[in-house]
Amino acid sequence: MTSTFTTTDGAQIFYKDWGTGQPVVFSHGWPLNADAWDEQARLVADNGFRAVAHDRRGHGRSSQTWDGNTMDRYADDLAELIEELDLHDAVLIGHSAGGGEVVRYLGRHGSSRVAKAVLLGAVPPVMIKSDTNPEGTPIEVFDAIRSGVDKDRSQFYWDLSETFYGFNRPDATTSEGARRAFWRLSMQAGIRAAYECITQFSETDFTEDLKRIDVPVLVAHGDDDQIVPLHDSAVKSAELIKNSTLRLYPDAPHGLYGEFRTAFEADLLAFLKH
C-alpha cells in the first residue's frame, strides 16, 4: 500500500509499505524518490521482509516545504516515519544522499529500533575537499551542480543520468529507458529542495555519526563511481564503523544497473538473512 503521514513541522511524507516481516527501510538518493528503490523493495518483500520506502521532503509526492531541507531534518523525518509505523529490528538502506540520511539518523537517534544498515554509494564521511579532507571533491564541482539545477535542471538531469549509470564509459551498454526514468524522477523534486540538498549531501560531515553506529553495516560501492568517488567515501566509512563489511564492485557506477544491480541484490539478500 501507499500512504502519507504528517511530520511534527507539518510536512506530508509519502511512503510505500509492501509485504510483511522484518522491516527494511529504504532512503533514496538525490534528486530521486522512493520509486528508485522499487525493484529492491519488491525483491525484499518477495523474500519475506516488509519493504518501506519514503519520498524525502521536497521530492516526489511529499510536501515541497520551503524550510527543513537539512540533513538533520531528513533524519528526523525518517525517525518519525519509523515511529509512525512502530518499526523494530529494522534494516536501514540508504543510497548516495540517502546513505547520509541513514548515518545521520543513527548518529542522531540511535539504534534502538534498528538491527542493521546498508550504505550503497553513500556520501559519508564528507564529500567536499578541505584542509582536513584533501582527498575530497572541490567545491567547484558542487557549484556546477547548483548552476545546472538553477539554470536548466531538465537538461542537467538528463546529462547527469549518463555518468550516474556509467553510460559514458567506452564499453558501457546504455539504456535510454534508465536515463528517462532517472530524468522523470528527478524532475519531480521541487527546485528549492533539490538546490538546497546539494549543500547537505556535499558539505555535511558524518564522521562522528559513523563512529556512533553500533549495528552491523554493509558498506557497498562501485569502484568506478563517478558521482561519489570511492576513495573518499566507502573506504573511509568502513574504517570508522565498528562493525562493517566493505563490498566493492569492479567497474560499477553510482546507479544500480546491469551486473552491478544483480550482484548487489544478491549481497543484500544474504546480508538480510544472515
Rank of each mutant, 00 (worst) to 15 (best):
G29D: 03
I93F: 12
D17E: 01
D131C: 02
N47P: 12
W66T: 12
F260M: 02
D225N: 07
D267H: 10
Y15G: 00
S233A: 09
R57T: 05
A144H: 06
M187Q: 04
H28V: 01
T8C: 03
M1S: 14
D86R: 13
K116Q: 15
A178L: 04
W183G: 12
T199K: 10
T262D: 15
G10Q: 02
G255T: 11
F206N: 05
L248K: 11
Q200V: 03
R180S: 08
F142M: 13
F5I: 06
E239S: 13
K16Q: 06
V103G: 06
R146N: 14
Y257T: 09
R108C: 00
L210N: 12
Y257K: 03
A220V: 10
G255K: 04
E259S: 07
L120K: 15
T4P: 02
G110M: 01
D171E: 04
D35W: 06
V217K: 13
D38K: 14
R113E: 00
L32R: 08
E84Y: 06
L87N: 12
V215M: 02
N243W: 14
R73N: 10
L85G: 06
A172Q: 10
K211T: 09
Q226I: 03
E140N: 03
D35K: 10
F14V: 01
F206S: 07
G148E: 08
F182D: 02
V141M: 08
T132V: 08
R192Q: 12
P253A: 11
G148N: 05
W158C: 14
P134Q: 04
D150P: 00
Y165M: 06
D159Q: 11
S161I: 02
G29F: 01
S62P: 07
G136A: 00
Q226C: 00
L81V: 09
I145E: 04
H231W: 06
E208C: 04
R261A: 10
W30A: 11
V114P: 00
V102R: 07
E101C: 10
T163A: 05
G60P: 13
N69H: 15
Y15W: 00
D205N: 15
L78K: 11
A117K: 12
R42H: 10
T204D: 09
S96A: 03
A178P: 01
I145R: 07
V217M: 09
Q188N: 14
L240M: 10
P250A: 10
A220P: 15
S161E: 05
S186Y: 14
R180N: 15
H221M: 13
Q155T: 11
G100L: 14
I139A: 02
A97M: 15
I145L: 00
L81I: 07
T2Y: 06
Q200L: 05
